[in-house]
Amino acid sequence: PGEVQGVHYHFLSTEEFEQRIDAGEFYEWARVFGNYYGTSRKVVESLLAEGKDVFLDIDWQGAQQVREHHPEVRSVFIVPPSLEILEERLRVRGQDSDEVIAERMAKAQAEMSHYHEFDYLLVNDDFNNSLASLEHIVLAQRQKMPHQQIRYSCVLKELLG
């Protein structure tokens, strides 16, 4: 409810989604809770070509696909401080039925068991602290080689003669 086509998501029929999978149009995709989700390869590659950081809000399945094709990508796994708080957050959203929440909770531990596949782990016990931690991760990644070497190649060339 409230999600607008072309603004929040691009909704596709199952058949169209599967055709786009076959055509390789997704940077990553997964079937989660009976629905397909994916990220447009064209959009991601365009943003990266512009030198922009790209953040994907994806599950472990999508992250596995991204790492397989782009091992240089860094990943952050975000978990709630407890299963009880996760359930409370799902209920407060007011978007899902009790049945959907029960299904999500039943699968939550299996989903979270993939945390070790990621580069960073954030326990989202306080939104502002978690956001600050994420900002630190991003800033640290921006300072790594070869990103900085490419960014400052002219300066380095001058300094080193």
Rank of each mutant, 00 (worst) to 15 (best):
G38V: 04
D126E: 15
D126W: 05
L122Q: 09
L139N: 12
H116K: 12
S82W: 01
A132C: 07
A132Q: 13
D126F: 11
S97R: 03
I85C: 00
E50Q: 14
V92P: 03
V73S: 06
S130P: 09
Q141H: 09
G38T: 05
V66N: 00
D59C: 04
R93H: 02
G38Q: 09
D59I: 01
T39F: 06
D125F: 14
Y115K: 14
H116R: 13
V54P: 02
D119Q: 10
P80R: 05
Q141G: 05
Y37L: 05
Y36N: 03
V43H: 14
V66G: 00
H69A: 08
L122A: 05
E45R: 07
G51V: 00
G62H: 01
A106H: 12
F127Q: 09
N124E: 05
A132F: 07
L139H: 15
E84T: 12
I85N: 03
N128K: 14
Q61V: 06
P71T: 02
R142Y: 05
S130W: 09
V43C: 11
V79L: 13
D119C: 11
S82H: 02
V123C: 13
H114P: 07
V92T: 13
L56H: 00
G51E: 06
R91H: 09
L83N: 09
V123S: 11
I58E: 00
E68D: 08
D96W: 14
S113M: 14
G38R: 03
Q141L: 14
A132E: 15
A63M: 11
V54D: 01
A63S: 09
D53T: 12
L56S: 02
F55W: 13
E111M: 11
G62A: 04
H136M: 11
R67G: 04
M112R: 10
A110E: 14
A140K: 06
G94M: 03
Q141E: 15
Q95K: 15
A132I: 03
Q141D: 13
R41K: 13
A110W: 12
K107N: 15
V138E: 11
T39A: 07
W60T: 08
D125V: 08
G62W: 00
K107L: 13
H114A: 12
E68P: 01
S130I: 08
G51A: 02
H114W: 13
S97Q: 03
D125E: 15
G94Y: 00
K107F: 10
L86K: 05
S40V: 04
F118L: 10
E72M: 09
E135P: 00
V138Q: 07
H116C: 08
I137V: 13
H114N: 14
R89A: 02
H114R: 11
Q64V: 08
T39I: 12
E68V: 01
Q64L: 12
R41Y: 05
Q65F: 00
A106V: 04
E50M: 15
L122E: 06
E87N: 05
A102H: 06
S97F: 02
H116Y: 15
E117Q: 15
N128H: 12
F118Y: 15
Q95I: 09
E45V: 04
N129Y: 05
E50K: 10
G51H: 03
Q64I: 01
G62M: 04
E50S: 09
G62C: 01
V138F: 07
F77H: 07
H136T: 10
L86S: 02
H116Q: 15
S82P: 01
V73Q: 00
E84K: 07
E87I: 01
